[in-house]
Computed example of a mutant assay.
Amino acid sequence: MQKGLKGIVATETSISFIDGDNGRLVYRGYEINDLANKYCFEEVAYLLWYGQFPNDVELKILKEELQKNRHLTPYQIEILNNLPTNMEMMSVLRTIISSEGTSEYSWKPTISQAIKLTAIIPTIIAYRKRKLDGKPFVPPRDNLNHVENYLYMLNGTEPQSAQVTSLESYMILTLEHGMNASTFSARVTASTESDLVSAITSAIGTMKGPLHGGAPSGVIDLLNEISSDGDTEKVIRNKLNQKEKLMGFGHRVYITHDPRSIALKQTLLKLIGEDKWLDLAVEVEKCAIRLLEEYKPGRKLYTNVEFYAAAIMKSINLDPSLFTPTFTASRIVGWTSHVIEQAEDNTLYRPQSLYIGKFINETVKF
């Protein structure tokens, strides 16, 4: 028996491949390094949904469909205006996405449905955040691409190109990551022939848990401390001497370099000198890996995707409450791809459990 189904193969997929031993992540046959540094969010989303890259016409149509579906409905605005102020953002997303569950989303799920849900999530986040901050809602703009529009709605001004580039790379790298907890949750719900909205609501509820979608707040704290102190090596040595865990290093799946971290670093190296937090992250990684090898030789502790994600969140001044929702705004593409794949050759998930309780009637024989 494997608790939590760890290591158990539950399905076949052609969406992504993870090789933790060798540090590989592949979307539809393409290495993640190539995807993050050569393509835009919309192109990689198209790849995951359709299994191939779009031509110019297909890309234009996808962008137009995303733009068309960015706008909140009157009833969604009414719900958002009446939600309690102490409801966290992931619960807000779960509630508003659930309100999408009309007869339009009947079995089987479609790519058009997936595009609609993907398009609306950034608008939900931006509307809620600006309302909590006492700021007017900034409507989406149809002449901006998906990631650029997200930043525009949050801040009310067009973002700098470095901010768009870094966040877009992060969102491409987190679109999909195999049979993780939230993806499994979505596929289990879909296996009952429930609708796409129900499957994605399940996934959001799973992502909300800190063991899965937890924000890289520990990395933020590390970067803040080093920035204030001014001595990277001193801060890291102090932490290692006190046996503290160095946040942003090591991963439960990858026993070597996290390929998403490598791809994100390649993007950020092109932006050196454009943002102090991105510059600091590159410096901290170099020092930390050297010291980790000194203090923990042979452990192969390298940066994970959360490390550079934290630097990006700092560079675009994203509030910590938006870290997991932003992760959700990208992972929605992977979730919907898996739900559509599940529907193509569906089998109801029905694992067994091992009973370890008592038998009151001891005469029962098995």
Rank of each mutant, 00 (worst) to 15 (best):
L5D: 01
T13D: 10
S16T: 04
G20I: 07
G23S: 01
R24N: 08
L25I: 12
R28G: 01
E31Y: 07
N37F: 07
N37D: 01
V44K: 11
W49L: 12
G51W: 06
Q52A: 06
V57N: 15
E58Q: 11
K60T: 04
E65F: 07
R70Y: 00
H71K: 14
P74R: 08
P74T: 03
L80G: 07
P84Y: 04
I97L: 10
P109S: 14
A114Y: 06
K116T: 13
K116C: 13
L117M: 07
A119Q: 03
I120Q: 07
P122D: 08
P122A: 10
I124E: 11
K129C: 09
L132C: 02
F137H: 14
H146G: 09
H146T: 06
N149L: 07
L151I: 05
E158F: 14
P159Q: 05
S161W: 01
E168I: 05
I172E: 13
T174Y: 08
L175H: 15
N180S: 13
S185L: 05
A190Q: 00
S191C: 05
I200C: 10
G205W: 07
G209W: 11
G214M: 08
G214F: 13
A215P: 11
A215Y: 11
L222V: 10
E225M: 14
I226H: 05
D229C: 13
Y254C: 05
I255R: 13
A263H: 13
L264M: 15
L268D: 04
K270Q: 15
K270C: 01
E274K: 12
K276P: 00
W277S: 01
A281K: 06
E283T: 14
I289P: 00
L292E: 04
L292I: 02
Y295Q: 08
F307C: 03
Y308K: 09
M313A: 03
K314W: 01
S315K: 00
L318G: 06
D319L: 01
P320Q: 02
F327N: 03
H338Y: 06
I340A: 15
L348W: 06
L354K: 02
N361H: 14
T363G: 09
F366R: 12
F366V: 15
